[in-house]
């Protein structure tokens, strides 16, 4: 029996043959990346408004990271009993600085500047066993 997996929010990321990608958009005029998708460009120095779908990842560099030592308030989701997790800010090679959980067993192994790749991993499990998936970064 295979476990059912659902994304935490639809349309934010997808798994492709060569890894996980974030689904966003990019301004055709000024090249600014947006995640999630944006229907307009918000760059005050850009007068263009033609947005193109874009996918981001999978490679990036850790800018900073932290460990969430206490259970976060709603609408965050986690399985009981609570287990602290690592999160980080990652600079993707395509110019997007993005937040996400870090898929690491030992948070002590994290360093700013370390190389990571996008993955999709369980955030929590529903009562019926369905896994709720989000994007994460795994050191490579």
């Amino acid at each position: 029996m295979t476990t059912k997996r659902i994304p935490v929010i639809d349309g934010l990321f997808s798994d492709t043959a060569d890894g996980t990608r974030l689904l966003g958009s990019r301004c055709a005029s000024c090249n600014v990346p947006y995640f999630p998708k944006s229907s307009l460009c918000h760059n005050p120095d850009c007068t263009g408004s033609q947005m193109e779908d874009a996918s981001f990842g999978p490679h990036g560099t850790v800018w900073s990271y932290s460990i969430q030592n206490y259970p976060p308030p709603p609408p965050a989701r986690y399985d009981e009993p609570y287990k602290p997790y690592a999160l980080g800010v990652v600079d993707l090679t395509d110019g997007l600085r993005v937040v996400g959980r870090m898929a690491v067993d030992d948070p002590e192994s994290l360093k700013a500047g370390c190389k990571v790749e996008l993955v999709s991993e369980p955030l929590c499990t529903e009562e019926d066993g369905t896994e709720v998936i989000t994007w994460m970064f795994r050191p490579i």
Binding site: P36, P72, A76, L87, K111
Partner: peptide, 24 residues
Amino acid sequence: FLRQRCVGMPGPSFWALLCRQRME
């Protein structure tokens, strides 16, 4: 909402990220 639901990043974690960056 998206930041909290998809990542789980309450206020202090914001400060923690800044602080860790400074430490490094």
